[in-house]
């Protein structure tokens, strides 16, 4: 608690606002995937920085939480660093980069590679909460469409992809159906991460600051990615593997290394990649050859094999 600055309420928001957001969250958890309006507050950060996620985090964070903040999978980007510093200053809670040690994770654009577990809460920053908005500008109408499950237009979008590109070309913010009812925008995560949303033991909450909407996927809830029978949902795959840790089934970022077009691929989830590299080093010192480690590294909480 030592780092906490004086003069602000715990986690910046006043208690009444936090209660209001928590009431909204309870409703959202009770109706998985349903967008709940909330009286969003102005935050000392611009909208694009994830004020929706920040307000949700502020409303649920407690003294005993350990916070992890990631942006595009990394803990050390400006956005992640700023948000983490903001909460350290206003709450004094401990932080971590390790997914396994965090109780609360705020994220933009990725879901950690390591499977989340019971007791963890993940907060997603959302720019546009309504997946129907692209086709129907009227809020009254989209509410009705959600209530009556009139989701034909979502498949129109996928149909257009196939007609134009020969496959479903949507790769981010790929729409999902939650608990067999509401169609939901999973936020701009890669579709690679969509399967992680389904039946997750963790609580997943989503906040859109500009549009003042929040929604939730409670633990162990079915989340299906929309598709066609003859064009089933597929996640991204790479021929390459991570240049640092050798993982061949994590989400990879392409990094340009020189002006000659040289490039390497590295895990987008930096914590995941670090943990694997550390394990490799310790395996090596135990006498196992690195090449073998690259192929076979396996630790209990890791999915890469």
């Amino acid at each position: 608690m030592s780092e906490r600055v004086q003069g602000y309420n715990f986690a910046y928001l006043d208690e009444q606002t936090k209660r209001m957001i928590r009431r909204g969250l309870l409703k959202a958890i009770a109706i998985p995937g349903y967008q709940v309006p909330f009286g969003g507050r102005e935050m000392p950060l611009p909208y694009g920085w994830g004020t929706g996620g920040i307000q949700l985090t502020a409303a649920v964070i407690g003294d005993d939480d350990t916070l992890k903040v990631i942006d595009q999978g990394a803990d050390d980007t400006t956005n992640a660093v700023s948000i983490r510093r903001f909460f350290v200053k206003t709450t004094g809670v401990g932080t971590t980069e390790k997914t396994t040690e965090a109780t609360l994770i705020q994220t933009r654009h990725r879901v950690p590679e390591v499977a989340l577990k019971e007791g963890q809460t993940i907060v997603y920053q959302v720019p546009i909460p309504d997946p129907l908005r692209f086709i129907e500008p009227s809020e009254t109408e989209t509410r009705k469409m959600h209530a009556l499950q009139e989701y034909g237009v979502m498949h129109v979008k996928l149909y257009e992809d196939i007609a134009r590109y020969g496959h479903i070309a949507t790769t981010y913010a790929y729409p999902v159906k939650v608990n067999g009812h509401y169609v939901m925008d999973p936020s701009p995560i890669p579709k690679f991460d969509n399967p992680k949303l389904s039946e997750s033991p963790a609580l997943q909450i989503f906040g859109a600051g500009r549009e003042k909407r929040l929604y939730a996927v409670p633990p162990y809830t079915r989340v299906e990615s929309l598709d066609f029978e003859d064009y089933p949902f597929e996640i991204q795959q790479w021929d390459e593997q991570c240049d640092i840790c050798g993982c061949d089934n994590s989400f990879l970022d392409e990094v340009i290394t020189d002006d000659q077009g040289g490039r390497v691929y590295v895990c987008s989830d930096t914590d995941y990649c670090h943990s694997r590299s550390e394990d490799m080093v310790s395996n090596e010192s135990a006498g196992i050859k690195k090449t073998v480690a690259l192929e076979q590294t396996k630790t209990p909480e890791m999915t890469c094999e």
């Binding site: 129109v156 007609a163 003859d230």
Partner: peptide, 27 residues
């Protein structure tokens, strides 16, 4: 009509709305 989606999708929309999930059939 939906002016900014293809003719095929315009025709297929109702089929998708009533639950047809087979692209080949819709086409």
């Amino acid at each position: 009509l939906r002016m900014n989606v293809s003719a095929g999708a315009n025709i297929g929309e109702r089929l998708m709305a009533v639950g047809n999930r087979h692209y080949g059939d819709i086409r």
